[in-house]
Design a protein around this nucleic acid. Structure first.
Lengths: 343, 343
DNA sequence: TTGAAAGCGCTAACAA
DNA sequence: TTGTTAGCGCTTTCAA
């Protein structure tokens, strides 16, 4: 930068001001132009380490995910990056595999790298790490799941509406024995969707005994398969299943096939999320579409807002905002009228 | 850190030496222990910006991808992170969408962040940006694809063997009219697989006229579908297709279905990569399994090697190493004997 | 084996 | 509007 200043015939401080959008107003327009030209000519790029050291901001954001390999998350991450990069921020990813110790390690490592804040997709309903971080004043935005302590801004799909749409669709097809294979009840999504399922069934005049639920202990194909077997053992009268997400739905599909049943002829199946390639499954999966890219982008925007507010010291008390993005039922081939009606 | 030093009753320089694994040998063992204890007690984490500023290393690596949302890349990225993080390095991702301008912008942004090197999954056969960077001494490792100028260490699956396995499998089933729907010929993978296809067909005694190829202009479902229609228009006698990758195979599947043909009864189909959920397609896809996680991990290891070498100044001239990881044919339901043999 | 001191490249308070 | 100056937190050379 001293080279740039020399070439432009000014002091480095002036060069710094000219090159920095937020302070370039303080400098003579002609001078600023000269400095920018010099910078261009020398191919100058500011040293971000020096800037961070001085300003105590890294323009870097930590992103906590369970597992990038879960098809849910790549679009979320892309959304985050598309919202961050025009503002000069970069995301640092960390996969936690839903392992608390691993999460803590990675979280501390990211704090050591001076990230300015976090976007967290790994929230458990009880999450001491996050509560402590909040206490310590670390800016955090939650995406998809949230904690029971509603301390954090939160962006998610409108799960309750999505589940209601799924149930109404099945009821409309004539189903009267609808079951739910839920996600883990230690996560807000698991609880919200399960509650919405019960509520929607009740609204449709289906009593609890005709709308049972089993709990999948993880959002995985395997857990979905196990839970579905359990469900069908106990409730062979079931004609339709609402799954906690698409992976669980896929597991349910395996269970159904393993039992020699056909989907959708014998049993209808609705997923949740509309993950990539859900339309290529056998059969193509009816599911609730969640706009994951937008979820990521919106979460990033919320975090940036918060960071900007922290800049202007005299900011108003920040309330934890909730943003629920609209979802859509996508009807494909895994749902049909129940067997009784077809007979 | 000065707090830590004070608490341990030493100078900050000594504290720094004690805390840094590579210099802790220079310090009295008892003193070192005292310092580490003090650091622990105060919850000290070193400021990485200050360290980077001083050492001119960021312990950060840029990763250039076409698109994180392509199911190929999440496992590669996980592999990279798993190899980097035990060494204290962090990956910074950038999606380029195969757009040269975007790539240049993101590349420069990452250099501005002082990344110590790059892992690049976006290589084109002709890639001026990379050649220039090499000229400038930027450490770079290529993964999956490579440039025609073989300047860079490179990690990939053994594409040639994989394609040979695919062709041999089809020949073994009785196919004599086998076609290839390739990837873009501007990428090394497109060329390598196409050449291997021709060579394998020839080895099996199938002449060029019975082993035609059409070029998919991208590794996408849409491109695969278009190219397959073109192929089948020109070569209706085709009984099997080797696709350039799984996305192209999926496009081929769409084309086949659109023409009222059945897979595998009328036409067999082999993909490439064994992307996640390829076993859930309709029909489950026979494909060449590539160990993407290992690809990423190995690429990261190669880059770290290079960075370590740069540390010790008197290092020998670095030769561009090539690592080809073994692949495996996974036979599923998209391949069967040709119609003639079934009749 | 430890301490003193300088400096990495930038920004911001203050002075002119 | 620009220049002067100090210092962010660490590492490393040099001296003791």
């Amino acid at each position: 930068m001293s080279d740039v200043a020399a070439l432009a015939g000014v002091h480095t401080a002036t060069a710094s001001r000219a090159l920095n959008p937020s302070t370039s107003g303080l400098v003579n327009a002609a001078t600023a132009r000269r400095v920018r030209q010099a910078a261009e000519q020398l191919g100058f790029t500011p040293n971000s380490a020096a800037r961070s050291l001085r300003t105590n901001r890294s323009f870097t954001v930590g992103v906590l995910l369970p597992d990038l390999t879960n098809p849910l998350f790549p679009p979320v991450v892309r959304g985050i990056e598309e919202a961050l990069s025009p503002r000069g921020y970069t995301a640092l990813l960390a996969n936690t595999d839903n392992d608390e110790a691993k999460e803590r390690t990675r979280f501390d490592a990211l704090r050591g790298r001076q990230v300015d804040g976090f976007i967290v997709a790994t929230a458990q309903r009880e999450h001491p790490l996050l509560d402590q971080a909040h206490e310590a004043g670390v800016p955090i935005v939650l995406v998809n799941r949230r904690t029971d302590t509603r301390l954090f801004p939160w962006v998610a799909g409108d799960d309750a509406t999505g589940m209601a749409l799924a149930v109404e669709h099945l009821v409309g097809l004539g189903h009267r024995f609808i079951a739910h294979v839920s996600g883990p009840q230690t996560m807000s999504t698991g609880v919200t969707r399960a509650q919405a399922f019960r509520a929607a069934a009740e609204s449709a005049g289906i009593g609890p005994e005709s709308a049972p639920a089993t709990i999948g202990e993880a959002y995985t194909v395997e857990a979905g398969e196990r839970a579905t077997h359990e469900l069908l053992d106990r409730h062979p009268e079931t004609t339709a299943i609402c799954a906690g997400n698409d992976l669980i739905a896929l597991g349910a599909l395996h269970a159904v096939k393993a039992r020699g049943l056909r989907c959708p002829e014998d049993l209808s199946l609705v997923g949740f999320n509309d993950m990539q390639f859900a339309d290529e499954f056998q059969p193509p999966l009816t599911t609730v579409h969640v706009p994951h890219l937008d979820l990521g982008a919106e979460a990033a925007r919320l975090l940036l807002e918060q960071l900007d507010r922290n800049e202007e010291k005299g900011a108003p008390a920040p309330m934890a905002k909730t943003v629920l993005l609209p979802v859509l039922l996508v009807v494909r081939a895994s749902t049909a009228a129940p067997p009784a009606q077809r007979a």
